[in-house]
Amino acid sequence: MNDTMTTFVATRPPTMEPIALAQQHKMAARNVDAFFGKLQALYDVCLDISANRVLAIIGPSGCGKSTFLRCLNRMHEVAGGMMTGSVSLDGHDIYQTDAVLVRKRVGMVFQKPNPFPTMSIYDNVAVGLRLNGISSKKMIPEIVERSLKQAALWDEVKDKLDKSGVSLSGGQQQRLCIARTLAVNPEVVLMDEPASALDPLATAKIEELIYELKKEYTIVIVTHNMQQAARVSDQTAFFYIGKLIEFGETKAIFTNPTKKQTEDYITGRFG
């Protein structure tokens, strides 16, 4: 176990018993406090994530939204942080589960497209399968094709699968990364500003993709783009200085938020 892993503090006893409150939700965060050394980044966050829906996390820079996202698949501890409280997936505490298994079930797409530069388009998608011990020469091509189709990229790359992943445009690279995430068959997909580095057309494709993917996956997206949050999400959570200020249906948050801080932020009057 590396040093960063040892900084994690589990407050719940090591048990696989479901957290009662979380049973009807895909994931649930309870009393999550997150830290980077002495700096506290999240305060007592409680949030339920519904299955097959899109949750948008919004808030100003430094409000803890990406930290919260990383707490959902134990990436926060990899980044040198620690957390207390609990996060459950299907009622089981992910911090009492093998981290690799958690990250297989809760995949992640990052802000900047990061295909493996030395690998072909095909291998970029297949690599996760091979790392997970799948070596079947029949299965891998099938899963690669299915994943690229799910990521709405297949038609654009099917004739050049042996080309380098980085030869694609930025928007295509991001969809390739989404295909790579989907290949290992996750249940939840976390997206950290997945379209912030893309042009409007590529952004529209990613947003359309998110809409399609929620039929099979639970999606949590961090975004700075208010319109994007309004367009793609079913539920929205507004974070401010490490606290969850408001959480609700997106249509309610964007028409009639209950908290003044939320209203001020989404209407651009913040500060």
Binding site: M226, Q227, F254, T255, E263, T267
Partner: peptide
């Protein structure tokens, strides 16, 4: 400006 909330109303 794609207004929301109070501005949208």
């Amino acid at each position: 400006t794609q207004p929301v909330a109070m501005d949208l109303r």
